[in-house]
Amino acid sequence: MNEPQSPRPRAPVRGVLSVLPYAVMAVVAAVDTSAGPEVGYLPLVSLGPAFAGLVGGWRRTLLIGALALLLAAGLSEYNGLLGDRRGYTAMLSVVGVTAAGLVAVRMRQAREAELSNVRSIAETAQRVLLRPVPMAAGKLRIALSYTSAVADARIGGDLYEVVTSPVGVRVIIGDVQGKGLEAVETAAVVLGAFREAAYDEPDLQAVGERVERALDRHLTSEKFVTAIMAEIGHESAVTLLNYGHPAPLAVQGDGTTRLLEPSARALPLGLGMHGTAPPQPHVHPFSPGDQILFYTDGVTEARDGEGAFYPLTEAAALLTETDADTALAAVRQSLVDHVRGPLQDDAAMLLLRYRKDGGRL
């Protein structure tokens, strides 16, 4: 998981904001000296310290304020307004705006510190909640990628777990509606119920019912959790139970890809009180050499600068890498390259590979 980060502007934007105060003061000085004192551009020098507080600390704001004051005094002298009311007004405006900018910087830094602290607490809770998945379970090779969003200090509620039970390997991946500590708490309820039920219950539907009941007791409002549960038993097949979650991507040994869609859509976990039919298990072939990629909507809903969604099915070609971790890392890098910046939502990916004759695949 990514380390906590305070919400700061992206590098190009930050660079523009850094030079903006100086550029504004330079433009005002050029216009004022060419237009003359009659037009009255001199008070606009205070825009320099007004923009200074957008990035950086109080020292930078104070420095720009001092430069603006010197510039206002110099322009007043140049225009013959140094002893005039208009010259004094311009310099007082610079002082006043600089003071306001210092207060704004202090408030911004306090908010950044608070958001960083909240994010740190939430990510610590999430690390405790999301235990490392095993690299192998039975005949499966498992790889995991979790990329935490850096938009604001509100992490998402993506969840995942792999449990080896008497009937086979059972998997869950899901996404809690909302963000922050409340989402982490809801994820804890889902994972706690799944870990118990996945080992105890004889069939996958019973596991889903146990998780649904636990979530109904926990939720106090109309929140929900999209999730998909999977069971890989002793046959060459995978059984899926989809609660309104994006369908996993299957990649067969010959390179053929398809989305494992259910025959009918079902509501997410937590909305069972509406009386709709629960999801029905659907079974798909899963043989040695095949792969299944589970993911959350932070992957498929990631957009590039032109608003295009990440083409996950096209990225299936990256899964041909022999090592599962390397293959999934390549997909993650492809996702980051597509966005060309920090992700705006948590993105979890869980890759299951059916190993060939006990090999490393």
Rank of each mutant, 00 (worst) to 15 (best):
E314G: 07
E314T: 04
E314V: 00
E314P: 03
A315E: 06
A315R: 06
A315D: 14
A315G: 14
A316H: 02
A317N: 04
A317G: 07
L318I: 13
L318F: 14
L318Q: 10
L319Q: 15
L319R: 15
T320K: 13
T320E: 12
T320I: 09
E321S: 10
E321T: 14
E321G: 09
E321F: 07
T322Q: 14
T322E: 12
T322G: 13
D323H: 15
A324E: 06
A324L: 00
A324P: 01
D325H: 09
D325R: 09
A327N: 01
A327W: 00
A327H: 00
A327P: 01
L328I: 06
L328K: 04
A329V: 06
A330C: 00
V331C: 04
V331R: 02
R332A: 06
Q333D: 13
Q333F: 09
S334D: 10
S334G: 04
V336R: 02
V336A: 04
D337V: 07
D337R: 08
H338S: 04
H338N: 05
V339Y: 00
V339M: 01
R340N: 13
R340H: 15
G341M: 10
P342C: 08
L343I: 06
D345K: 02
D345E: 09
D345F: 01
D345C: 05
D345I: 07
A347P: 00
A347Y: 00
A348L: 12
M349H: 01
L351C: 10
